[in-house]
Design a protein around this nucleic acid. Structure first.
Length: 659
RNA sequence: GCCGCCUUAGCUCAGCCGGUAGAGCGACGCAUUCGUAAUGCGUAGGUCAGGUGUUCGAGUCACCUAGGCGGCACCA
């Protein structure tokens, strides 16, 4: 007999070998019908798996997250079965569930075509209709290797060969088809349902290594219900509409062309957005005690040899040669330059922490396949800074940075999903003791700022661990923006030092940090986050003054001048077009405020304001509108500071703080 | 870089079995002065990504090159 403890704490006894389905039926027949999986002491098991031991027991329904993941895994198996029925000789490799769906990698000489996807999907539905029971078998390792080799499944055999000798392995059978698999699975192909769709074809390397054979990956999405599938497909369409490349063109923000792959031509409106972001960042950094610098764009190769970049990243650097035969490289990063400034003149412990920032334009020759709109480019500008400090200042500086980064991200409408602590990678510099210490320092700093980071095993830079910000946008997608990395290596390599209290020379520690990452990418994220409908402070064009009749032209020009004088970005639309047309056009262009002027407004000196997304009109005097909009258009940091004292803040702009 | 798909007017896209290029929007012109998401009429605009080949004939078929897109790998 075994004891099962249910989620409500009650305990019941069952015969050894009882299945989850039996247990469910013993509670209620309807429960047995709706059950999909069971969980025993945290482990997911097949509904029909005979239970050998008791423990904490839970019956999972089809719509539970665990069952959905299992359903997706099942769908990948059904796809593999369909593929092998339709394309004999295609070898199976691996096929897991992923976010929103699944994939399976096949080895086959002929490429699959888009038409094949439709056929495979059709066959998958037939397999679901066949209602093939999915059953678990336990095989001996060596027999399994033999079996998979005998049927020509070299990859499966290789996977099993990687398991320890003597290990029992599980094979799942569905109909005449079987696959090596850890499980669990739903009881039959019918249980999977038909709310799935094959979405894309792709190449993928065996075991994720580009030196291995390239396999063909088929991606699919699968859901518990048709309605969920529909909702997902709609979500994809919505996401596509906010693609920053599409919006960038529609709003005339930037373009790219083949002569400068991975390089951005910023148009006036795009650069306006850029300047707003840069100005904001500069104010925040100034306020946080950073010293802004600028370092050379091109430096001799000996410089990069010394920093270590030449050896490791030479293929990814833009190198040029002069008439005299010097080899130079465009800077791929700013840190070595900042160390030179640090080393210029003698530094004292009193100078630390020294926070050196630069909007650093960098060039990296990224692989062609990596380029993606503004998100991955070859020429980019980092909101970079390096904090030179003593080891005992790491925690404090990191904690301060966490607060700054969080505050900046929030101002841009992005919420933090989590912070990842990226730990030691397989290939790394430094001893295990060093990594133990460095990881502990980053963790302690995060906790000091009230953050419990999610561990990202092996994701660290080769010289140090780092904290990475994972942000969530307005439709729930995540983006990685912002990082802080601990570095003991570069100061050593470039011989940075300061004089300590003891009069001796010491090595500072460097914290590499960025809040946006690159401005290019960050602006791309902002475009997608707001779908182009920027808040007033970010909008490239904040107000369009549109006339109804030409009688209003003079006042419209005067109104535009008045608003512009208050720092607002204003355009006029005096064209001989109907107001309907103008409203539609500027609404589609995501202009936050349309100020309409007809004969009435021109006579009374008023504006009829219409906000993007609303059809309400607010008719107020030009003076009142200017006051209101100018206040609203303040960047969040300015608004915070200027609360209640705005007029004096305006006149005191430019006053330097000393001290 | 690798695998697959794609490339037709400024943009979005039609174009059958190979028979000689089309729409909507936009631009431009004229008329219209019209109160909150498209006024009407007209005009211009294309070496069908580039190249080679097959063919009497290529936007359409084959091959090569470039770029784009989706993945993979990479991301200091």
């Amino acid at each position: 007999m075994i004891d099962l403890i249910f989620p409500d704490g009650s305990k019941r006894q069952y015969e050894t070998g009882v299945t989850g389905r039996d247990v469910a039926a013993s509670i209620a027949p309807s429960l047995a019908k709706r059950a999909a999986l069971i969980k025993l002491d945290g482990a997911l098991l097949d509904l029909d798996r005979p239970l050998e031991a008791g423990g904490a027991f839970e019956i999972l329904m089809r719509d539970s997250p665990e069952a959905l993941e299992t359903l997706r895994h099942d769908a990948s198996h059904i796809m593999a079965e369909a593929v092998q029925e339709l394309f004999p000789g295609a070898q199976v490799t691996i096929g897991p569930s992923i976010d929103d769906g699944f994939y399976y990698d096949f080895a086959r000489d002929e490429p699959f075509s888009l038409d094949d996807l439709a056929k495979i999907e059709q066959r998958m539905k037939e397999i679901v209709d066949r209602d093939e029971p999915i059953t678990r078998e336990v095989w001996k390792r060596d027999e399994a290797i033999e079996h998979f080799k005998s049927i020509g499944e070299a990859y499966k055999a290789e996977i099993i060969e990687g398991f320890p000798a003597g290990e029992e392995i599980s094979v799942y059978r569905q109909g005449a088809w079987k696959d090596l698999c850890r499980g669990p699975h739903l009881p039959s192909t019918k249980a999977v349902g038909k709310a799935f769709k094959l979405t894309k074809l792709a190449g993928a390397y065996w075991r994720g290594d580009h030196r291995n054979a390239q396999l063909q990956r088929i991606y699919g999405t699968a859901w518990a219900s048709e309605a969920d599938l529909e909702a997902y497909l709609t979500r994809l369409e919505e996401a596509e509409k906010r693609d920053h490349r599409r919006i960038g063109r529609a709003m005339d923000l930037f373009h790219m062309q083949e002569e400068g792959r991975g390089m951005v031509f910023w148009h006036e409106k795009g650069l306006t957005l850029w300047r707003v972001v840069e100005d904001y960042m500069r104010r925040r950094l100034d306020a946080a005690g950073y010293a802004e610098v600028r370092t050379p764009q091109v430096l001799d190769r000996v410089f990069w040899e010394k920093s270590g970049h030449w050896e490791k990243y030479r293929p990814n650097m833009f190198v040029c040669e002069t008439e005299e035969g010097e080899e130079l490289s465009l800077k791929p990063m700013n840190c070595p330059g900042h160390v030179q400034i640090f080393k210029f003149g003698q530094k004292s412990y009193r100078d630390l922490p020294l926070r050196m920032s630069e909007f650093g334009a960098c060039h990296r020759y990224e692989p062609s396949g990596a380029l993606h709109g503004l998100m991955r480019v070859r020429a980019f500008t980092q909101d970079d800074a390096h904090i030179f400090c003593r080891e005992d200042q790491i925690e404090e500086e990191t904690a301060r940075f966490i607060q700054l980064a969080d505050s900046v991200h929030a101002d841009f409408g992005l919420t933090r999903d989590h912070i990842a602590l990226a730990t030691r990678p397989a290939v790394r510099a430094g001893s295990d003791e060093f990594w133990d210490k460095a990881e502990a320092q980053m963790l302690a700093a995060a906790r000091r700022a009230g953050v419990e980071p999610v561990i990202a095993e092996g994701d660290g830079a080769f010289y140090a661990p780092k904290l990475d910000w994972v942000l969530k946008d307005s439709i729930g997608r995540t983006w990685t923006c912002g990082t802080i990395q601990l570095d003991y290596v570069l100061p050593e390599r470039l011989e940075a030092e300061y004089v300590g209290e003891d009069g001796q020379k010491h090595r500072p520690v460097m914290l590499h940090r960025a809040i946006c990452g690159s401005l290019e990418r960050f602006i791309g994220v902002l475009i997608e986050n707001y779908a182009g409908a920027f808040p007033l402070w970010l909008a490239p064009v904040q107000v369009v003054v549109a006339t109804i009749t030409s009688d209003a032209d003079d006042f419209a020009k005067q109104a535009a001048r008045t608003l512009a004088a208050r720092g607002l970005r204003v355009e006029t639309d005096l064209r001989n077009e109907k107001i309907n047309y103008k409203v539609r056009e500027h609404s589609l262009a995501k202009v936050p405020v349309i100020a309409v002027i007809g004969r009435r407004e021109a006579e009374t000196g008023q504006l009829a304001l219409r906000r993007l997304g609303s059809d309400r009109q607010e008719v107020i005097s030009l003076e009142a509108a200017a006051n209101m909009l100018a206040l609203e258009a303040d960047a969040p940091d300015v608004a915070r500071e200027g609360q209640g004292a705005r007029s004096s803040a305006e006149t005191s702009a430019g006053v330097m703080e000393s001290g």
